[in-house]
Design a protein around this nucleic acid. Structure first.
Lengths: 217, 217
DNA sequence: TTCAATATACGACAAATGACGTATTGAAAG
DNA sequence: CTTTCAATACGTCATTTGTCGTATATTGAA
């Protein structure tokens, strides 16, 4: 087995790091690298005997989303795995739309990268569980895709707060939420009080609306 | 770490097989099993100290999709992984819509099952790469999703009721809604009372959730 | 190791909500 | 012409919610 791999990545340092991970496996053969989407496609036209492309998203000239679209158009047999630091809904969705076969984060271990590449070659999709969760969420709530990216305020809820807010959004009252989470109702109320302060709202409905608008739940 | 797991599976043989896989891991504690959705939920109400549910889809009485929907409604914190032999688009999509946190096939190895369970507990989604590929495909080509077979109940709100429900969903209180619509607060309350009866819910949040689900607002 | 953040818990009180009742008016349907 | 339905309005009462306090244990980062 000789799997031919190309990389599209503008950062020299990161590209180097990826190449080193690939070099750990005998069945991988690194072919070439492009510093941006345009250059990459240029090189690909010279040598399109490529099995898998590891594609960065944020690149000058042409980003990885557009490049993926073009490549999938001309070379549908080539598998493309996004390899990026961004895991926001917008990028994930656009990558999938463009035809990506996988979406992994750059802090990946060599073994996981190896697995992912093998999986896409077998027709599967390579994703970290957290990315998979976001993808499922997009499937479940398609309206989020059009979500505004305008006022991305810096609101951060703790894990517990998010958990409680989710239950609030289902219509559960303090008592039931407390039972579910094995804490006392006063604690639930205190958490909710804190949530309201963070979101600058004054009742459940506003909190849920604002949280959904900002993809907090 | 002691992860509490319950199983919904009608087939004794398969249930036994799953239990044996779980038994290989010390951090797993098998709690109980239901032979169908209805029985399972009955048991869950007696003991809801459950972290993860392994849910079959095809079951008598109540199938795993419906059971998932109900459980996620009442106990949103419980993670649910579908464990089934069917990997068709229809079932995958419905499971996701119902709120499943993962979708695995029954011929799974104990180690992969273990990984999947740990992943969902960390907020990720558990999927085999082939399932992930199908899920991505659904995202990419939404038209493949054969129209909602979930029967939309015939709920009809009057114009006034819809109007009021919309304002409710924004977080306005009775007083403000009354001012907006130039009617008295008692009238607003009466309308809302009627809305609750029609939707068979008992508070604002449930009403808004159900209305959105049924495209009433 | 100290400090900030988080999660936990309780009490009190005013305001809002949910659930019930009753009742009048106007408009649409038969 | 009656009957039904939608919309309006009011009252009562128990429960829930929102907003204040205060306080302790844990935890992770500086």
């Amino acid at each position: 087995m000789n799997i031919k791999i190309a990389i599209a990545e503008d950062n020299n340092f990161l590209a180097q790091s990826i190449e080193e991970k690939l070099a750990l496996f005998e069945d991988f053969k690194f072919k070439f690298r492009g510093k941006n989407g345009a250059e990459f496609i240029g090189k690909l036209e010279e040598d399109h005997v490529i099995d898998v492309v590891l594609m960065d998203i944020q690149m000058p000239e042409m980003d990885g989303i557009k490049a993926t679209e073009l490549i999938k158009n001309r070379y549908p047999q080539i598998k493309i795995i996004m390899l990026t630091v961004f895991d926001d809904d917008e990028n994930i969705f656009n990558a999938i739309k463009a035809g990506a076969d996988g979406y992994l984060l750059k802090e990946i271990t060599p073994d996981t990268l190896h697995d992912g590449i093998c999986q896409v070659l077998e027709g599967g999709a390579a994703m970290t569980p957290s990315i998979a969760a976001k993808a499922l969420n997009l499937l479940r709530f398609p309206e989020k895709i059009t979500a505004d990216k305008v006022q991305v305020e810096e609101i951060s809820l703790t894990k517990r707060e998010t958990e409680i807010l989710e239950q609030l959004s289902k219509g559960l009252n303090y008592q039931l939420i407390a039972e579910n989470l094995f804490i006392s109702p006063p604690t639930v109320r205190k958490h909710i009080e804190n949530i309201y302060k963070k979101l600058q709202v004054h009742n459940k409905m506003e909190a849920v609306q604002k949280a959904m608008k900002n993809n907090l739940i």
